[in-house]
Simulated scan of single mutants.
Amino acid sequence: MKRLFPLKSGDTLGVCAPSARFDIEKLNLGIQILENLGFKVKVPKEIFKKKRYLAGDDMLRASVINNLFLDPDIDGIICARGGFGAMRILDHLNWKRIKQNPKPFIGFSDSTAILLSIISETGTPVIHGPTVVSFATAQKETIDSFYKILMGSFDKIEITNGQIIKPGECTGVLKGGNISTISHLLGTRFQPDFKDSILFLEDIGEPAYKIDRMLTQMKMAGLFKGIQGVITGVFKDCDNDEYIEEILSEIFDPYNVPILSGLDSGHGKVNLPLYMGIDIEMDTKKIAKIHWI
């Protein structure tokens, strides 16, 4: 899979809300930051609907995404926030339309369900990166790297404070995201295929034993067969996070692949964007780094 054409100043980002309801004040702050970066922002009125904890019913949330992909004036699509709800709309997304109108789709956390499904259903790469609401409190490093990746100039990350759990070099398609969301796709037709992939994992608010349980389930389901490497992001507010490296070592040791933890991507203070669905090189021998090919 080849990366999408980079965007340019003045291009339009469409906002979707595939998951939970959001704070309107934070949304507006995030929109202001996107506009300060030089993007136009289109906010469909439908995303302000409410149903329980969701941003409207399933068909409505899906139709916003379908329409943004079809709209020729939209150059990229960014999620309002995460939470829960993205997997509920997977059956309502128009995969043929999405494949015929490729454009950057950006989100993380609960949006992992859509990111991985776009890759598998259409062959289109995606961006695991900040949502509009998260921009309201984003640090400069997050904002700058987001701009660079959309402009096509963010090709390498050196992980200076990471932990090399198992050294080595590998090449593969970068895929992954939120562990909890991935685990709930098991047994569905949207279960991801990680063969020949470098697997990225992150989560928030999950104690170590739950991360252990979810990874063990994935392993027993055969989800990790054929992986080329593992890199983990932030495990924010996870009880007993001092156990995480040991858990990762135990889970992935049978696959004899490089394992690196500590990438500033996910729910931490810094959320570096990751181009997923295309090949990267990962090196953990000397300076821990990943490089998009």
Rank of each mutant, 00 (worst) to 15 (best):
E35S: 14
P130F: 04
K40G: 09
H92G: 08
D23I: 02
G82Y: 04
V132M: 00
I74T: 10
K96D: 11
S109H: 12
R21T: 11
L68E: 04
M151K: 12
I127Q: 13
N36R: 12
K96L: 07
R21K: 09
L90F: 04
E46S: 12
R21Y: 13
N94V: 01
G83S: 07
A113Y: 02
I31C: 14
G152N: 12
G123M: 11
F39H: 08
G107Q: 04
V41P: 01
D91S: 13
D71P: 04
K40D: 06
G129I: 07
N101F: 10
T122W: 05
R61K: 09
E46Q: 11
G152H: 03
I24A: 05
K45G: 11
M151Y: 09
K42S: 12
Y147H: 13
G107K: 01
T137R: 08
D58E: 15
M59Q: 14
S153C: 15
E46R: 10
T122I: 03
I89Q: 00
N28T: 04
I89W: 03
V43F: 06
I149L: 08
Q139P: 05
C79M: 13
T122Q: 04
V43N: 07
I24M: 08
I65G: 01
H128D: 15
I65Y: 03
H128T: 07
D110F: 09
P130D: 14
K26S: 06
T112Y: 00
M87H: 01
Y53C: 13
E141A: 08
N94H: 03
D23R: 13
T112M: 00
M87R: 00
K40W: 12
F22C: 05
I47C: 14
A138G: 06
G83L: 10
A55H: 09
C79L: 07
